[in-house]
Design a protein around this nucleic acid. Structure first.
Lengths: 193, 193, 193, 193
DNA sequence: CATGAATGAGAATTCATTCAT
DNA sequence: CATGAATGAATTCTCATTCAT
């Protein structure tokens, strides 16, 4: 037990160090040596847990995506109305990203730069299915605009990344009590007229 | 004249090569030697036009931002209604990004990764003032929701980057005749109730 | 007994694994970790049986040399004629190398590259004395050319390594029934005129 | 002219340094940094002339093979008798290897260890054709034993490498006036009875 | 202005060896 | 005896930048 915990610890420390460094300084400007140092392990140790730098980044990406989608569907009940269900998911996502700005920045970086292969990117999307199902139902019920999920995503989920970025720069903080207000904007964008 | 044109040509070729390489392969994976090769000049020549790699990227960023905002305010008449004016700007922006996917990807990359200093980023925003003015007027006139421009931006302009990204991946193309439809979604998000 | 057998087993497995890997992939391209894996033991275990990598190689070299010379003098009777005695030894050597190509390649590699110290190399030669004695007698009896044993070796024993190498590359196989024919060539090279 | 000479100089210096180091210390134990130092250039400079370490070794191998075969066929006249022709080639080869021991050791190392790909090895053989033609003629004329060229090679050319190796170890030097004597041994091995 | 060979610091990665368990 | 995770020095290779021409 202590064994496997320790092993897990080192892997986790490496992922954490990578998250910190990459989100603050970018993929370039994040040498393996620095990652090892921050993680408190030797440079060679990285290669006990990851094949190479790309694999480290990919692994972190998938872990972050999983962590995000886990949070997204917390307390989500598919039996409730489309609006209620979507509000739950959206607020979960917004809360997660505002409370985990570093993770949000890392994911935004991966999603907007050619750092991650398409294959890994697709794998990262697999946990989003419940939201796609909800949207499908919403379109079917005439609650949502009858448009591509890409449009629904662009006007509701994608903007959250922007909130994280500006919060990080101390420019604008989507404080907690504004979630409802901001959710309304998202909802107005996609609801059927 | 022929002299200065030639010089300008090389500078332009270098910016163009950088755009191509960075948007396709990322900042890392874009060595100076490759930029020079694509631009058809010698590696040393880059340093006649730019101080260093960072300066090259910064310059390209500012040039792209300027080009984008130039397009954004084409045929914009501040005297028209807020909705008409905003529709003009939004459609200009959408059309520009969908027709210049590479530029869009490059800007998205710069805006979402720590490649560009805050100083340069701010400088890139300076041409956006007319839009901020319009939004201010819209809020004043009670046409727009009385919220931070960051929110207005997040729900109207920011999503356009996403459309460019998915178009680039051949996943979803916001074709021309959908601009009105898609604009409506943006407008619904920010209009006062 | 079972104890010491087990130990011996591991030592032997390590030597065998080293033989395989070095003869197929060379000294470089044969990491200790791979040797351990092929031998079915842990990396650390190597150092229970050998001081370091060099010692492992040296030990294998000496073992292979001993094994080769053991085979070489099988059924050798010093009382027979020089030609008969030499034929016995030569055919033993040829048969051994053609039936143990991997060993032959390993020895050739050690003998032609600076992998083995001169001290160890000399130690590997010590079992060859009966052949040197036979040659000495042959020269004395006027049966053999009166030349340095280096020349006798070069024209009779050394070529066998070449046969092993080309057999390994599937280029040419000195099949069994050709031993007599091929021996004649060796004999003609060194016999007195 | 001075330009291309200088460039050629650096490439040549790198090949020479590699020859020295590899033949004395082996492929492993020859780091690129040491090669650069001996050649009097910076480490990075190696990669202006060679793709990687393997390419450097391959290039040296081919250069050495070409140099050797050039020397081998000096003053060779295909119109002379088989024995005279072969004597010319054999003595050229022996003289070359005894006067260029380092080159000989390097080639022996490459030929006896998996350092060189089969493709490159075959390429290195292409200049040996005149000798193969001569042997073919010799077998046809009944002058030579009717055996595979592999056997002819093993008993005449291959032993020369051994002479170079022992000369290098100061054990035995095939001095000039012994060439005829030693050639006779080779000839006796392969001549028809 | 322009070149491009050369540099050398720094990056990713490997691997012989150790040592706590 | 045996393990195998961990180390960190060493290795290969890259690349931004310089400078003699």
């Amino acid at each position: 037990m202590a064994e496997s915990e320790k092993i897990s610890d080192k892997r986790q420390a490496l992922l954490q160090a990578t998250l910190e460094l990459v989100s603050n300084h970018g993929f370039h400007n994040t040498p393996m040596a620095k990652i090892a140092k921050i993680a408190g392990v030797s440079a060679g140790t990285i290669y006990l847990y990851f094949d190479n730098k790309q694999d480290l980044i990919d692994s972190l990406y998938l872990e972050m995506k999983a962590s995000f989608t886990d949070a997204a569907f917390k307390d989500y009940n598919p039996d409730k109305s489309v609006k209620e269900g979507f509000a739950q998911i959206w607020k979960n996502m917004a809360a997660y990203k505002m409370n985990h700005v570093q993770e949000a920045l890392f994911l935004a970086q991966c999603d907007n730069a050619p750092m991650i292969s398409d294959k890994v990117r697709e794998k990262g999307l697999q946990h989003l299915q419940p939201l796609l199902n909800l949207w499908e139902r919403g379109r079917h019920e005439g609650i949502l605009r009858d448009v591509s999920p890409y449009l629904l995503y662009a006007y509701t989920i994608y903007p959250i990344s922007f909130f994280a970025a500006v919060k990080n720069r101390d420019e604008f903080d989507l404080s907690k009590d504004m979630y409802q207000h901001t959710f309304d904007m998202a909802w107005n964008a996609i609801k059927a007229i």
